[in-house]
Simulated assay, not measured.
Amino acid sequence: MTGGGDWQHHLLRELTDVGSDGAPGVPSPRADVQRTDASLPEPPTTPPSTRPQPRDPRTPAPTPESAPTIDPRLAHALGSPQHGDSAARRAGASLRRLTASAGQDVAEQTRFAQELQQPVTTGRVIAVTSIRGGVGKSTVSALLGRTFNHYRHDPVLTLEADAALGTLPVRMGADTVRWSCGDLARILTPSMQLTDVTGYLVPVADGGWLLPASQGRVGAPLDVRAYRTVTLALRRYFAVTVVDCETLPGEVARTAMDTAHARVVVAPMTAEGVNGTRQVLDWLAQLPHSALATTVVALSAGAPDTTLDPKTAVAHLREPGVPVIPLPYDRHLAQGGPIHTAMLGRSTRDAAVRLAAEVMQRAVRVR
């Protein structure tokens, strides 16, 4: 990607420079890169009695211990990942591609790639939420994070702002987690460079970074102040941040949906799920700045035998300017565990790319 602005050029230089010891791939600090952005709003103030005291830079922050994302006693039970499409379906799809018009497919893929690679001058934040858990919210967040990282050549972050036992680290393929969003909120300083920040993040196997909400233990949930502190600060380092929010009407979810540049509402392919999502869209329309223009609905099929008519569901959710992207049932996603993009069904990959392109197109509209 080109034309993303000087800030992206400097970030890429930091990531690819040879370190001072001559080792390739080890970033070296750049004194000429400034990490301040006067346009970023300050986090909300709190009373002096509850306001966190600035950390003395001479005192190192306590380092949490790494924790596995899946108990080792259960890891072996995941089994081998299965392909999203059956062998017969893959064979049929290959035959259809041979007889179909290749030009139309290439033109559509090129258009999606151009939308995903749009340059940004400041980081874009994309919030993903739903009306209840278990509908594929973290799965959609992981798909978006991986898709953006595949198409873009600038830094991409996937951030978990869900409850203490969220599943995003597992879906992103992280073996262990250490620093959480709340931990990072307490140690962030304006002088930190990208190479400093990434030291607290989890590198994703196929690129990009992950910031979990916790170490997978029951504890205090992420609060609004910590969320705002982290997202406002990290926008200067990452071109795209995908936020896996808690479910609505949680306070952090409402804050994330209200302050994001674009939003994805995940709706399960059920009558009650579509009905509840319809109410979410009505709420978004009532926000002071009306967030509908930057909202996309992901209609997720969690079972292969859903009986709800897709056309009726889409029609019930349709709003002017709000696309509804169906995500088909996929055996690989339904299996749980880490998402391997090569194992996804063809229709799932196409839907993920289309969803990411639609939401990115809306995110860049916001100035």
Rank of each mutant, 00 (worst) to 15 (best):
R318H: 13
L333S: 03
A293I: 00
D309M: 12
E272V: 14
A315N: 06
Q335H: 15
T294E: 11
R263I: 11
T255C: 03
A253N: 05
V297D: 00
D309W: 10
V324K: 01
H316N: 08
V266M: 06
V266A: 08
Q335C: 11
V353K: 07
T259E: 08
I325F: 09
T294V: 12
Q279M: 01
V266H: 05
R331Y: 02
V324C: 05
L333I: 13
A253E: 03
D244K: 05
H332R: 12
Q286K: 14
R346N: 09
E272Q: 13
A301D: 03
H261Q: 08
G337D: 10
A298N: 08
Y237I: 10
G250F: 06
V297P: 01
Y329S: 09
T307N: 02
S300K: 07
A298P: 09
W283G: 04
R235Q: 14
D350K: 14
V240H: 04
A285E: 11
A293T: 07
T259S: 01
A315L: 02
T259N: 00
R254E: 10
R346Q: 12
V274S: 02
F238P: 06
A303T: 15
T341W: 13
A267W: 02
A334N: 10
T295I: 06
T270S: 15
G345A: 11
V359C: 03
P268D: 07
A271N: 01
P320A: 07
L299I: 05
L248D: 01
A357W: 08
V264M: 02
A267L: 01
H289W: 13
G302Q: 12
A334D: 14
L299Q: 04
V243M: 09
V324P: 03
S290D: 15
E358T: 08
P310Y: 09
R349E: 06
V322Y: 06
